[in-house]
Design a protein around this nucleic acid. Structure first.
Length: 858
RNA sequence: GCCGGAGUGGCGGAAUUGGCAGACGCAAGGGACUUAAAAUCCCUCGGGGCUCGUCUCCGUGCCGGUUCGAGUCCGGCCUCCGGCACCA
């Protein structure tokens, strides 16, 4: 016990208490002064682009951010120690509605509000000690950023990928604004909860559907680096389906109605046609204006199907049958051709419609052998055998779909086509705080794009925001009134702004530049930094963006590839989707949801009523089940907060917040602190062990250290299992703290040294501090990641498990590396085993090297 | 309805791609130190049984199968979570 004496009060005094605040701010200043996280392209080293989804500057960071960025920081720091040249940037998704709401509610200008929030949150992120290259920071609301939104828009316009059309949009009557699809939650506005209606508006669209097939095929390429479920969601969203399009002539007229179906095998069962209310022929086929208006108002309303008989008939081209034409609210204009053939016997929706309007149901598919007698209770939608279908009767559905498709093409009645669920991306927003769409409307010249050299079209600052709803830019005369770039005459600017998803579809490119974002000069420029850094090697963010943001970014990257900006088609080679941060909800019968500190000993702090604890749910302000990261930093420090969020669950799973859990993480760092500072003098005076020690306890600790390096490294490398990596570091530390340093000081130092190196990506500040305390030269994170020696990690004795008929009957320690026969002999001689064997005959012995023997009796 | 994912102690979670189920942490219980508390340290900790052991039986949502051996593979259910959903 040469170096430790817990009871010695003098020594206690000399050991400084662990003060996270002091340690952390000290090292943050150190890193910043030295610009340690500043990265430049270096052709001599392998690059690694590590990116986390940038935050919306809502005011302060929340636990979701902490988790996301803690994961990213471990990866960035780890890769750096592994010798990669790591690009690890951060920025702000700074346009968006909350800024505008703040302006309406508190009279602060969105720019000011956003700027203040960014300032505050940047401070918070710095306080967490994340290793960002802040010199590459971008905010999407800066003109130097959004000018490229406009530039991309113009490039797409040139290529016919940006176009304007009338469309039905989601409209919130209470907020008097358009809502994006993702802002409609179960038919209601996400902000004010009022029912969303539809409204026809002229809007700008980006033609993502041109890339539907490519985006779908690209999914195969991603299967190595992306979570399976995210790829599934992307495929699902694109929703490819094969079918046929065919024309039904209108009886007593010249019109033809083109329908789309995936089930041509049911063609003989079509008993009526249905058009979407907005179908171009709907107007002319019915005289009932009122009825049509009613259907339009019910469009997209799921509760009930409504229809209107036009009084006209269509002719089924395969059998010449006259069938009635209906207009129906459930037929979508956006999918297929906006018209369907209705086969009530084999489609549940058509079945319900037919029941309501007394339309005939004709069975043309029967399941397998016979059966299917009597009136249907519901549609039979499965495949089967065709009946009453002319020369195709008796064929199986699968085959008939092929055959009929071919037949229709031969006869010129239809054609096989592929349809996608994916729609073009409507990007117009009737809002202020976004990128102005660079388009000018001239009475003489029509739609005129703003010339490239006039970019950016600046967002005017002098706009009054009163929440009226109509595009606020309309009210800015200086903005709206302009000159036509072509004829010089008076013209008006487009007053809608872009969806903020446009901003986030390419921000990862902006980080590739320091200072000016030089997108323009990067076109067809092989020396561009864009090409050096792209694609992102590791992307980390929440699953909530599994479709929209990720799909839009994949689309953008392909367009930019076609423009000659980047070579890659996929922006994100590897994707890690972290789980949500959850916490149990608390509710007072009188005061509703409670913040964690409003419940004292299970009672409401205001009324003393017993608190009901509800389900564990995602942390959210509305449920008040939140923990403020700033509070954690103050109480435990950034290192503990980071360590716990990484330890409590594997990254992709949901994390349940636990107050005691974080105490545990803090205890671990505290213990480590105490041990290193206590033994500092000794640690400074010895050299770390290099070779394999002779034997005894020193050798065991040395071996354990190598095993831990191996375990931690492989846990990080294969699927980022930080929780088990931390667990094994704790295990190592448990052995270190049980070890008497006097036995083998060099080994002791070796172990602590490696432990600090491995801990540094997780809890970097304390690692730096103790590294220095130990007499090592800072900075710890500029040291290479430790290597393990397979030889040193190998055990020379292993525990052999002996089973009889698959049940564990004995355990014994044997030297490592025995061959099968030797192991078998030891097992059969084992006294505890012989009793079990004596009853029967040994039929077979199975040996699993270095682990287990199973003796099978006959 | 369709597509994904998950069910393991009181809890969060571990288990070389078939080989000792429960690592690590939390909570709980017991003890040491202390005038006391906090902190710290040590021990116990899936369940049952008994002759309390170097004992024994059961145990990874449920039922069956493959195998010398299944938390892990196969078939069939149940439950929960997420996404999409009148997409023809």
């Amino acid at each position: 016990m040469a170096f430790r004496n817990r009871a010695d009060p003098e020594q206690e005094d000399r050991v400084q208490r662990y003060d996270p605040e002091k340690v952390e701010t000290r090292w943050q200043a150190y890193w910043e002064e030295r610009g340690l996280f500043r990265t430049d392209a270096d052709p001599g080293r392998r690059k690694f682009y590590c990116l986390e989804m940038f935050p919306y500057p809502s005011g302060r960071i929340h636990m979701g951010h902490v988790r996301n960025y803690a994961i990213g920081d471990v990866i960035a720091r780890y890769k750096r120690m592994k010798g990669f040249n790591v690009l690890h940037p951060m920025g702000w998704d700074a346009f968006g509605l909350p800024a505008e709401n703040a302006a309406i509610e508190h009279g602060v200008h969105p720019a000011r509000w956003t700027e203040d929030n960014i300032g505050y949150m940047r401070g918070q992120l710095k306080r967490m000690g994340f290793s960002y290259d802040w010199t590459r920071e971008v905010a999407t609301c800066e003109p130097r950023y959004y000018r490229w939104n406009q530039w991309f828009f113009l490039k797409m316009y040139e290529r016919g990928l940006a176009y304007r059309k009338d469309s039905l949009v989601n409209w919130c009557p209470s907020c008097a604004t358009v809502l994006a699809n993702e802002q409609v939650i179960e038919g209601r506005c996400w902000r004010c909860d009022s029912p969303v209606t539809r409204k026809e508006l002229k809007q700008w669209f980006l033609k993502i559907t041109d890339y539907a097939e490519e985006l779908l095929r690209g999914c195969d390429e991603l299967s190595e680096g992306w979570p399976e479920h995210v790829i599934a969601m992307q495929r699902n969203w694109i929703g490819r389906s094969e079918g046929v399009e065919m024309d039904f002539p209108v009886a007593d007229g010249d019109e033809r109605i083109t329908i789309f179906t995936t089930r041509p095998d049911t063609l003989w069962g079509a008993t009526f046609l249905c058009l979407a209310p907005m179908h171009p022929l709907a107007d002319s086929l019915t005289g009932d204006r009122e009825g049509l208006e009613f259907l339009k108002s019910r469009y997209g309303v799921m509760e009930e199907k409504h229809g209107l008989f036009t009084g006209r008939y269509a002719v089924n081209p395969v059998n010449g049958e006259r069938i009635p034409i209906y207009i129906a609210n459930f037929v979508l204009m956006e999918y297929g051709t906006g018209a369907i053939m209705s086969v009530p016997a084999h489609d549940q929706r058509d079945f319900e419609f037919a029941q309501k309007y007394g339309l005939p149901v004709r069975v043309v598919i029967v399941p397998g052998e016979g059966g299917g007698e009597g009136p249907l209770q519901r549609a039979y939608e499965d495949e089967g055998v065709l009946v009453s279908s002319g020369r195709f009767s008796g064929m199986r559905s699968r085959e008939a779909i092929e055959e009929i498709g071919r037949y229709l093409e031969e006869e010129g009645l239809g054609r096989r086509v592929v349809n996608y669920r994916l729609r073009d991306w409507g990007i117009s927003r009737q809002r202020y705080w976004g990128t102005p769409i660079p388009i000018i409307y001239c009475e003489r010249c029509g739609v005129v794009p703003v010339p490239e050299e006039d970019l950016p079209v600046l967002l005017p600052e002098d706009v009054s925001l009163e929440g009226k709803g109509s595009s606020p830019l309309l009210a800015s005369r200086s903005f709206v009134e302009t000159r036509c770039p072509e004829c010089g005459g008076g013209a008006r600017r487009e007053t809608d702004t872009m969806d903020t998803f446009v901003d986030s579809s390419w921000y990862f490119l902006a980080y590739c530049f320091r200072g000016d974002i030089e997108i323009g000069s990067a076109v067809r420029n092989p020396a561009s930094e864009l090409r050096h850094w792209m694609p992102v090697d590791q992307y980390i963010g929440g699953v909530e963006h599994a479709v929209l943001h990720l799909l839009y970014s994949r689309f953008f990257t392909r367009v930019l590839r076609d423009i000659g900006l980047v070579e890659t088609s996929e922006p994100f080679r590897n994707l890690l989707t972290q789980g949500m941060v959850c916490k149990e909800t608390l509710r007072c019968p009188e005061h509703g949801w409670l913040f964690p500190d409003e419940a004292v000993d299970g009672r409401c702090s205001r009324c003393g009523k017993e608190v009901e604890s509800g389900r564990v749910e995602k942390m959210s302000k509305s449920k008040k089940n939140i923990v403020d990261p700033e509070f954690l930093i103050r109480k435990y420090g950034a290192d503990t907060s980071r360590l716990f969020t990484l330890f409590a669950a594997p990254p992709e799973k949901d994390l349940e917040w636990s107050e005691q859990g974080i105490e545990g993480a803090h205890r671990f760092l505290n213990r480590l602190w105490t041990v290193v500072t206590r033994d500092a003098g000794m640690l400074r005076s010895v050299e770390a062990e290099k070779g394999l020690p002779e034997g005894g306890k020193g050798m065991r600790l040395f071996r354990k250290t190598h095993q831990t390096v191996k375990k931690v490294t492989t846990d990080i490398e294969r699927r980022f299992q930080f929780n088990t990596a931390i667990a094994s570091m704790m295990e190592l530390f448990n052995e270190i703290s049980a070890f008497d340093p006097g036995e083998a000081p060099a080994v002791y130092k070796f172990s602590l040294r490696n432990l600090l190196l491995m801990l540094s990506p997780f809890s970097p500040h304390i690692a730096e501090e103790l590294w220095e305390t130990m007499g090592e030269r800072p900075s710890v994170l500029e040291h290479p990641w430790p290597e393990w020696d397979e030889e040193a990690a190998r055990e020379d004795e292993v525990e052999l498990v002996i089973q009889v008929n698959g049940k564990v009957r004995a355990k014994t320690t044997v030297p490592a590396g025995l061959d099968d026969r030797e192991i078998e002999e030891i097992a059969l001689r084992e006294p505890k085993v012989t009793g079990f064997i004596s009853g029967g005959e040994v039929r077979k012995v199975i040996v699993v090297k270095g682990r287990l023997v199973n003796i099978v009796l006959g």
